[in-house]
Design a protein around this nucleic acid. Sequence first.
RNA 1: GCGGGAGUAACUCAGUGGUAGAGUCACGGCCUUCCAAGCCGUUGGUCGCGAGUUCGAAUCUCGUCUCCCGCUCCA
Length: 481
Amino acid sequence: MATVDIGTIVSLCKRRGFIFPASEIYGGLGSTWDYGPLGVELKNNVKRAWWKAVVYDRDDIEGMDGAILMNRLVWKYSGHEATFSDPLADCRECKGRFRADKAYELDCPRYKRKVIECSANLTEPRAFNLMFKTQVGPVEEDAALAYLRPETAQSIFVNFKAIVDSRWRKVPFGIAQIGKAFRNEIVPGNFTFRTREFEQMEIEFFCKPGTDEDWHAHWIEERHNWYLRYGIRPENLRRYVQQPAELAHYARACTDLQYRFFPEREDAEKQWDELEGIANRTDYDLSVHSKGKQEKWRLHNEHSTQSLLYRDPVTNEKFVPYVIEPSAGADRATLAFLLDAYSEKAGADGEPRVVLKLHPALAPIKVAVLPLARNKSELVEKAKAIKSDLQRRGIRAVYDDTAAIGKLYARQDEIGTPFCVTVDYDTLGVGKAQAGEPATSPVTTALKDTVTVRDRDTWEQARIPIAGLPEFFAERLGPAL
RNA sequence: GCGGGAGUAACUCAGUGGUAGAGUCACGGCCUUCCAAGCCGUUGGUCGCGAGUUCGAAUCUCGUCUCCCGCUCCA
């Protein structure tokens, strides 16, 4: 299977209306991207597929949608105010950049020595704050400092008690959320892989201490299978178990699902990067947001008004739930599905044509209805009527007659439309008169009110009665998201 | 932030001091019975931006912005 580099996808995305550089007519803004007409459909489908899998298809997850602006104290007690601000220094000699507080122990990337040995060439440390700051209140001097949330998870933790109380939930259960998050990344890049504004799809799954390892394993399995179900090829997806030294101080374990985003890189290890992280965060999060002294984490929360201690209503047992966090990036998932769907196939003329083999549930457009020729009004009217009917039944369909049939097929292949419906003369039951032959024949009469349905991946065609189209597509497009 | 590379039409690019181009794409017309057909026509670029040198700058010089690659960061 051919692999594709991101540059090819960037070009395709712009040319066909998936993703554009943001603010482009003003020269752009670093690392911001806008989803265009097809991109928004694709990304919405990715998000709906995720929501369906984790909320609708299960009975132990609630959904929510939290505010981007939150009380600053949330970030104080979550630890972000302290850890999201790093002093960094540059080395003028080897061109490396290091955390000033760790520089002495690090190896110089260019010379065989520790960074401390070239410390005379280090620039003064500068503070890099990874959280976007803004103000709440229009008068700048009086306004309160606020941050754009750097992750969606905290919305879930601070709503834990409200959801338990309002939805009669018992642990184990989870809360799912899709939303924007913002990080002033030092080095964004690689298209939508790392951007400063991005969308997360996160679950915080609360469970009893002692059952956490089983739930962790469960979620790794669930999430891995979700990507496979929606078309990611197994050879491009792997699990990476974080080593103890890589773990956050409170995390007990973390397994990343990595996708082969960069197959063009020579170093095989660098071809892989994180698609989703599934962490066992222990009871850290609910503890730090609980009022009072938290011995285990050696901190005292003097601002929170609530204890997030959980009391099991059946056993009366009290404990702070452990949290399993499957945290996925909506933009990264969308990019992975795009990369994985890309394929090329030789056309009749031998030239390669792009076919985007998106899973039907993710495809921006499900069916394109096309007239075989556009200068025959009967073909045009019939095709438009079929398009309207399919759309009324909830199947995303478009009509197009702006080119010859071959080009129309090629265009739909390139944007991943699974099926094309073509209205021809047989559909009208009037077979075109050939020299010396009657205008109609028994064969064409039998084909009246049927259309051809062309498959994107095989380019094979089937003759289907118009009345049978909804059922035909329902079987092949799968359940609605 | 440092180093390297690059900015010319929607895309891919040519154009090294003298009237801004090609292919593709897009749009319209004619035509067309199924895989990017043909013919005709059309739209679209202050050559990233700003200075400077010059009779004259896409081209030379300086500055600046943006993007890409690499490095440092990413609970």
